[in-house]
Design a protein around this nucleic acid. Sequence first.
DNA 1: TCGTATACCTTACATGACAAGGTATATCGT
DNA 2: ACGATATACCTTGTCATGTAAGGTATACGA
Lengths: 114, 114
Amino acid sequence: MKKPVYKELVAASSRPMVLSILTGGESYGYEILKQVKLLSGGEVEWSDGMLYPVLHRLERDGLITGRWQLTDEGRRRKYYRLTDRGKGQLARDRAGWRAVHGALEMSWGGGRNV
Amino acid sequence: MKKPVYKELVAASSRPMVLSILTGGESYGYEILKQVKLLSGGEVEWSDGMLYPVLHRLERDGLITGRWQLTDEGRRRKYYRLTDRGKGQLARDRAGWRAVHGALEMSWGGGRNV
DNA sequence: TCGTATACCTTACATGACAAGGTATATCGT
DNA sequence: ACGATATACCTTGTCATGTAAGGTATACGA
């Protein structure tokens, strides 16, 4: 049983993570879930019930756009890609994250101990 | 006008930040607010309306303990200090944060570009 | 035929920041 | 004397968001 990352941390990272994954090209929900797990070395696992609303929000806000696609096996997937607005948001999210991360690392010893 | 850090990021960092600040010794709400600003180089500013409920939660959960103190000037302050439970929680929060941070940094270029 | 993986979606609930309001004292400038 | 600002704490109403749990459907291997 893996201890889950606490939900506020998921909330803080979901948008930049999804946007960032999409800088690598189109992707879809189920694949993004696996990407997150892979990128974190298995330490972070998202529930699909959390991801789909995130994707809908990002699309509603114009940060990503989606298109339905049928695979050869007959499965339907919704592929998303980053918009220009999404790229701008990602840059701001990354800056905000790093500001907070810097403050945390400072508080965790100010560069001396771990 | 400073652009505020978005609220999910505040929610994710508030507990580890407060607990971490208290590893440096007792402190109180108003001072913690200034510490956060200082540690972030002025980039992160918390509202007091957000911090006080955080402190109450942490105390309720036994991660910190508070005591009222009167200063020489007649001001009342509530000083908080870290408990052993709080130290354990801080270690878990730090591990969780770093797991997510690592995944984000991976997604932000995999170690190559910025 | 049954379980697992793939692939999407929704709702009820609890949590937590934000905005805005409140109380009170001390200090400093005019 | 008075007003503004800093210090120092608190609470309430509103909104956003994850979690848990449920749903639908197809493909594939045992």
